[in-house]
Simulated scan of single mutants.
Amino acid sequence: MKIGIPRALLYYRYHVLWETFFRELGHETIASPHTNKTLMDAGSHYAIDENCLSSKLFFGHVSALEGKCDAVFVPRIANYGKDGVMCSRFEALYDMSANTFRGHEINFITCNVDLQQKCPEAQAYIMLGLSLGASENEAKDAYQKAYAAWQESHEKHIQEEEAKLHDDRIKILVVGHSYNLYDEYIGKPIMKGIEQLDAVPICSDAVDLKQAQTDSLTICKAVPWIMNRELLGAISKYHNDVDGIILLTAFPCGPDSMVNEMIIRRIKDRPILNLLLDSQDGNAGIETRLESFIDIIRFRKEARL
């Protein structure tokens, strides 16, 4: 069986886990292409206007997999219990996808992670494995290997980002969800732009996720969304080691708009640039803002010497 995985949203967080899990069960995986203008336009066509840019891109990636696989994997992730809830779009993503593409030649498979309903992640993947014809032991073994591979990959990523802190150049913590940071069309140009300005981007997802939950409490104790709490934890971790902070948000993300405003009000000792990504063509405006932001930081550092 060939399983398609949209290269959007939680792909950048969990793709190692997903690909390893399906491979261990004997299935082939195929990811959709990197985001481009065609995929963005397709996503805008299939999504309602109120969807955030990241959700629109997801539907574009789903459409790109039509006819190229036996089924498309779209997980439904509601919450991780006391650790926090996900944005409601992640809980509804499978249902939105199945309804949006009804009548198309696309089959969907899912797993349902919902600790509040006593369905933890491991159980969700075991049930997915059973639905694909594996035995319970095979599914359990596949998940354990997949989780170990994901954990190893994530720890390596943390080490790589932490190594950048030893660089003598200006360091910028880029605070954003991984699906925005690493998207080839909306996030990567910003990371490259920072590097072209002779500065070092530090990615906010390079944190121990459990520790980040705890660290987030030093900034705010009342954020319900688990992924935004992780971003706060990243600010707490890297705050003293960076020269500035960029908040990277896809329009019109509700959780980010609320949390970013709180960050701007509470973090006063580091320059902050709030970048809002939308579907308009061209990055000229963003490039100008990046250049000005980093120039200001550079001038301040030189003035202190």
Rank of each mutant, 00 (worst) to 15 (best):
L217G: 02
N274L: 07
L275R: 06
A284V: 15
M227P: 00
L277S: 05
E287T: 13
P271G: 03
G233M: 03
P224I: 08
V207M: 08
D208F: 15
E291H: 07
Q213H: 05
S204K: 01
V242L: 07
T249F: 10
I264M: 15
N274Q: 12
K221F: 12
I286P: 01
Y238D: 08
E261G: 12
I246A: 06
I235D: 06
I245M: 06
C220I: 10
D278G: 03
D243N: 13
S279C: 09
G244H: 05
R265Q: 15
L290G: 07
M258F: 13
T249N: 11
L290W: 04
S292D: 10
G233A: 03
D256Q: 04
D241L: 12
L247D: 05
Q211R: 14
K237D: 01
D269T: 10
W225T: 09
D208K: 15
Q211L: 12
I245F: 10
G244A: 09
A284W: 10
L231N: 06
E261T: 14
I264C: 12
C253N: 09
G254I: 11
N240H: 11
P224M: 06
V223Q: 02
I263S: 03
A250E: 08
E230W: 12
I226H: 00
T288G: 07
V207N: 04
I272M: 03
I219M: 14
A222V: 14
K221L: 11
D215T: 05
E291G: 04
V207P: 01
